[in-house]
Design a protein around this nucleic acid. Structure first.
Lengths: 233, 233
DNA sequence: CTCATAATTTAGGTGAACCTCATTTCGGGA
DNA sequence: TCCCGAAATGAGGTTCACCTAAATTATGAG
C-alpha cells in the first residue's frame, strides 16, 4: 500500500516508469524494454517485471517481445508527472533562486511528494506559465500538452534567423555551458557559418552584446530552435 | 539502497520513526514500543524490528523490554526532520496561501523529499523564522531547538494575563475551531473564570474585538500558554 | 511471593521492487 | 531457409518494511 494518498498517486517507481515511457514515446515511437532500462538505470529483467505489473493495472499495453505503449490512463498519469516536474522547476528557479542547471534533481524528488493542490498553488503563484526554465512546454492540469515544432540547430539553414526555444534539463554541465555562451530560451540569432562533415555551427546574436559563438555539432543537436521571420522595420 | 542522496537521508520510514521517538522523548521520557506503534499506526512487532535496525545503525539506544532513547546522531537526524517540517509549514502558509489547519499533511510528505538546500532557501525567503504557524519553535540548521516554558490553559491561574503560544498541528478540525474563536499564537487574554471538576475556562481577549470565550477542559489542555506581565501604562 | 495481564519480542510470512544468471524469442545476413 | 546475436523474458534470490500468531518478559495486585 502506498504511504499517503495525495490525489491519485502511484508508487514512486511506477511514476518514474510512466514518465520514462512517455518520454520514449514522444521521441521515437514504441518504448522498448532495453530503452526503459537504460533510461532508468535498471536491469532489463526488472523492467520486464514492472511492465507486466503496469499493464495489469491498465496503465499500458504490452506486446511481449515487441514493446509498450501508454493507455489513455497511463498517458494521463505520465502527463501529470511531467506537469509536476516542470511547474516545480519553474517555481524553484523563479521563486527560490535556483539556477536552471540545478533544478532537475530537486524536481525529480519532489514531483513524487507534492499534492495536486500544491502544484496548482505554485502554478497560480507563477501566473500559469506555459514553459519551464528550459523552454519545455508545461502540460495543463487537465492533461493537454503543446507540441512545439522545433528543429535542432544543426538543421537551421545558413543565414536563417532563429530562436533557441528548448534545451534538455538533464545535464547540468551542458546547461551551465549554454548559459555561459549567452544562450537561453528566447534568445534570437542568425546562423552565419557551418562547417561540413558534422562540423561546428557559428551563430551571431541578434542583440549583439556577445561576440559570435562557434558551437560544436553534438551541442548544436541538443539546442531545439524555431526559425523566425526577420524583423521587419 | 535509498533512492537519492539529498544530504544525509535515511529511508522515509526511518525518518518517521526518528521523529516519533523524538516527539515521545520530549513529552514524557523514554519512548516505549507501544507508544511508537500507536503514534505511527504500525503494529508493535514491526516497531520492535525497526527499533533493532535503528539501534544497529547507531541512531538509538535500545534496552530490550524497557524502551528506546535517541543517540546524539539520532537526535540530530530527528531535529533535522523537525526543522524541515516546520520550515515547510511556515513556507506553505506564508508564501502559498495554505491555511494553518491544512499544512500538516503536505509538510509530512515533503519533509522526506526536499534537500537541505531547498529548506535553507525557504528559511532565507522567510527571514529565518523562529516559530512555525502553530507557534512551535523551529530548530536551527545546526540542530538547536528552543524549549519554551509553557503551560496548558488549564493551569493558568484565575485572573492572570497570558498569551497563547503554541498549539498542536495534528488536528485540522481543532485548529479550525481555535481560529474561529479568534485564538492564534500571540493572542493575549485574561482568565476570567474557571469551573471546578475539570470544567471549562472562560477567557477575555486583551484587544477585545471578540466576546469572552468559554473553552472546554480538553481543548484548554492543548492550548500551550505563557503567563505575561500586565501591560504597564 | 506468586501469578495474571499487559507489553514486548520472536518466528514466520507477504508484497514491492530490485538483482543475477539462464533461457527463449526475434530479426537479419549468409 | 537457417542460424546467430541481440533483446526480452523467466527463474530464483535479496532487502525493506510491514503483517499475524505465538512465545516471552515485566509488573503490580493480592
Amino acid at each position: 500500500m502506498i504511504a499517503d494518498t495525495h490525489g491519485e498517486a502511484y508508487s514512486r517507481s511506477r511514476e518514474d516508469y510512466l514518465k520514462a515511457i512517455f518520454w520514449l514515446e514522444s521521441s521515437g515511437g514504441a518504448a522498448q524494454t532495453s530503452a526503459i532500462a537504460e533510461l532508468l538505470d535498471i536491469a532489463p529483467p526488472s523492467v520486464s517485471g514492472m511492465v507486466k505489473r503496469l499493464s495489469e493495472s491498465g496503465l499500458l499495453e504490452h506486446v511481449p517481445y515487441r514493446g509498450v505503449q501508454l493507455t489513455r490512463t497511463g498517458r494521463r498519469a505520465a502527463l501529470r508527472m511531467v506537469r509536476r516536474h516542470r511547474i516545480l522547476e519553474t517555481y524553484l528557479t523563479s521563486k527560490l533562486g535556483y539556477d536552471w542547471d540545478s533544478v532537475h534533481d530537486e524536481a525529480e524528488r519532489l514531483e513524487h511528494a507534492v499534492s495536486d493542490e500544491l502544484i496548482e498553488r505554485m502554478a497560480i503563484a507563477l501566473g500559469n506559465p506555459r514553459y519551464d526554465p528550459h523552454g519545455a512546454p508545461i502540460p495543463t492540469a487537465d492533461g493537454k500538452i503543446e507540441k512545439p515544432d522545433l528543429m535542432p540547430l544543426t538543421e537551421i539553414p545558413l543565414a536563417a534567423t532563429a530562436e533557441l526555444r528548448m534545451v534538455s534539463d538533464k545535464n547540468p554541465e551542458l546547461l551551465r555551458y549554454i548559459a555561459s555562451l549567452g544562450l537561453r530560451p528566447g534568445v534570437g540569432f542568425e546562423v552565419v557559418a557551418r562547417q561540413p562533415f558534422r562540423g561546428p555551427v557559428t551563430i551571431r546574436f541578434l542583440d549583439s552584446h556577445h561576440a559570435d559563438q562557434v558551437i560544436g555539432n553534438e551541442l548544436a543537436e541538443s539546442l531545439h530552435c524555431e526559425v523566425v521571420e526577420k524583423e521587419v522595420g
